[in-house]
């Protein structure tokens, strides 16, 4: 981290607090209270002895804010850096609001695509497959696959933000989220295929013929295709599961 005005202990406190950024998630301000809570130690330090400026600073971080929580580290770091400059009289405080509001959407989009859309499915499907070898193996692999990149982004993103807007941009571009997102999604799809094969395997009775096995496989592939199409048409998994429950109750009454 650059030699800013803040002592390392304060920066560490802000870094730790980012894990609670969604602690008071609400429909009106979303992560507003969480963001103010995260940045509070920095503000208290920077505006020591200036209670009115401190209140104003806290208030501007209680404005609406929402982004993907892990990627929010970049914005948090950059906001701390900007507050340093504002406290020193080098920057207009209104720039902070514009900056946060301008970034939260697109950074959230990158984070949602990478963390929720690619990394989480990858970790989940790897964990689910390995849990059939041993549940503890599956659980460990799930946690490791997700949390290694997660914690790296939380700390490197925060550090890059602390170096200023340009470094934050360099980090966002250099981290290669686009490429990684597509790669993770492809690997997740491969593992999804293996998981699907396990489902067909489970359906087969011991000692069936090759022909029957091929028939089961073809049926499963067609069903997987049908389900995927339905999910893409925004049919909810709950609706399909309820349908299966009703089918089950009709077919197997007792």
């Amino acid at each position: 981290m650059s030699g800013g005005f803040l002592p390392a202990s304060v920066r560490r406190a802000v870094w730790r607090r980012q894990f609670l950024v969604q602690g008071c998630w609400n429909y009106e301000g979303m992560q507003n209270v969480g963001f103010a809570y995260s940045i509070l130690p920095a503000l208290v330090h920077l505006y020591a002895g200036r209670p009115e400026d401190l209140t104003k600073a806290i208030k501007r971080h209680l404005e609406f804010f929402n982004t993907q929580p892990a990627m929010g580290s970049v914005i948090l770091g950059a906001a701390v850096r900007m507050e340093e400059r504002v406290a020193a009289g080098e920057e207009d405080p209104r720039a902070i609001g514009t900056f946060k509001v301008g970034l939260m959407g697109s950074i959230g989009a990158i984070g949602d695509a990478y963390f929720w859309g690619a990394l989480k499915p990858l970790a989940s499907v790897a964990g689910a497959i390995l849990s059939f070898v041993h549940p503890l193996l599956g659980i460990s692999v799930l946690l490791l696959i997700y949390n290694f990149p997660h914690l790296v982004v939380r700390s490197r993103g925060f550090a890059a933000g602390m170096e200023g807007q340009e470094k934050a941009m360099t980090f966002l571009k250099g981290a290669g989220f686009k490429l990684r997102t597509e790669d993770r999604k492809t690997v997740a799809a491969v593992l999804g295929g293996i998981y699907g094969a396990m489902a067909v395997w489970h359906a087969l009775a011991a000692g069936v013929s090759w022909g029957t096995a091929a028939l089961y496989f073809a049926a499963a592939a067609l069903l997987a295709n049908l389900f995927t199409m339905m999910f893409r048409k925004a049919v909810s998994p709950s609706e399909l599961l309820l349908l299966l429950l009703i089918v089950g109750l009709l077919l197997f009454p007792r």
């Binding site: 929402n66 982004t67 993907q68 939260m104 959407g105 697109s106 959230g108 989009a109 984070g111 949602d112 695509a113 929720w116 859309g117 893409r232 925004a234």
Partner: peptide, 15 residues
Amino acid sequence: SRLIHGQVVEGWVPH
């Protein structure tokens, strides 16, 4: 209000 964000890119774009 947020213009580009996750709901748009991950939700509506593919839909």
